[in-house]
Design a protein around this nucleic acid. Sequence first.
DNA 1: CGGTTCCTTGACGCATATCAATCTGTGTGG
DNA 2: CCACACAGATTGATATGCGTCAAGGAACCG
Lengths: 260, 260
Amino acid sequence: MIKNNLQIWPRAFSSSNGKSQIFKGLSEESLQKILENSTLQHFKKGQLLVQQGDTPSYIYLVIKGSARSFRSNTDGDETTIRMLAVGDTCMETSIFMGGISPVTLQTTENSQLILIPSPFIKNFVLQNPQFAMNILKIMAQHYQNSIQQIDSITLKSPTQSVGYYFLQKHLEQGSDNTEFELPFKKSTIANHLGITPETFSRALGQLKKMGLEIEGEKIRIKEAFALCHFCDLDTAQNCTLSDIAKLECPHCPLHTGTHH
Amino acid sequence: MIKNNLQIWPRAFSSSNGKSQIFKGLSEESLQKILENSTLQHFKKGQLLVQQGDTPSYIYLVIKGSARSFRSNTDGDETTIRMLAVGDTCMETSIFMGGISPVTLQTTENSQLILIPSPFIKNFVLQNPQFAMNILKIMAQHYQNSIQQIDSITLKSPTQSVGYYFLQKHLEQGSDNTEFELPFKKSTIANHLGITPETFSRALGQLKKMGLEIEGEKIRIKEAFALCHFCDLDTAQNCTLSDIAKLECPHCPLHTGTHH
DNA sequence: CGGTTCCTTGACGCATATCAATCTGTGTGG
DNA sequence: CCACACAGATTGATATGCGTCAAGGAACCG
């Protein structure tokens, strides 16, 4: 246990209003107890933390940097399952299946992560219903994301996949903002969407024609409803436009939907 | 509540050694309480139980028949997320996200399902840790399946996808058995694997050359290691061959793997 | 600066979707 | 009991969208 290092880690991060779903709503004591049992560790870019087929010993929480989880075949091709930013966790599912990891976990930058030992987790879940609920919500979120990933790969054209991804990021980073940033490098996003970097790049060309300005990692929305092309029923429910504005939106899928 | 109808439902089904993960390890009283709050209902083939974007009111448990969950785009194309056989449940995830369903749920035959009301579920989870753990395991299983689905679609050739699917079914139905059955019609399986029925059919042609006999829904393994071509690291861990037999297996991915 | 990594753009080929015809099995009604 | 209809599966021919390969450019870092 590298207890001392935990001082480095900004306290605010773990607070109930922080970014990390795993700590949401926990008391200060609970938090303290988790941290006492955890270790903070630095990893270099590209390091493998867990390999596909391994039995993971920790839940990994990204404090600084980023990571990705992926599967690979015998030819060495890889498919990115998740891209983890600061505050994201990984390996909850495997821990609870008591089994082996279906993915490899790898840092994509020099990063710092908190490692929470799996035996402690299993125990703590039974003691703390709020913590159990947090784990449940994280898993539900992962599952939902993977369903949308399947949808993107099989049901959408490359341009639609990228547009849909952009729409999600736009909503996450505040839908009143006309500008947002890509949190990962383009080739990683492309792989996550099941397309090659080349195809991703060509899709960007299409999106530029549709009223987006793309400048490195920065995306600016020039035409107000540009991303609304890519909205689906699920996402429309979370649309923050006023009901009046929704009616004006030329693409909103709620218009055609029947009322129940 | 159609309490009387519940008498019809074979009691053995719900026992702790039954097929349904959701009821595993529950006491007779707990079981009774769940059933008292549930309804048994008949649905015709092709009926829609929940639509993508709806807020589901129940967890659905298949008692007789089968169902599938899928997403569709505006062109009317569909991608099958899950195929539900007897004993399978659906909509747990949406219930716990407190949100809307990302998929449409549809019966694929005339079927009977038990409907467990969502408010009851939410309440019961807090009272009964075993039940909470069951839900957690179900969600983890769904997530893992969806990861393998992504893997199949992006990393495998059509023949490999089908072979891998066959291997899973073979293991599920008893790996000492040289014969197993497809639990759903081929076109549904094809859609689940992200390929067309035509491509699925052509993949079957390849598999026949590799030592499989395919007769309608029945698959017979003529050459002992025929399906081992399609094994991956995850699956190898669950391989029931003895360690000696594994060494003889010409395709086992464990042979080349480095020991940790 | 010079090297590396990432992104972009263009030309080409192939694997799988699409389209179309035939075959098989199964349930239905005369 | 047979004939018919229909859904599903198979097989063949064709088309096309995306991957692959290759070259050039931009940004970043030591």
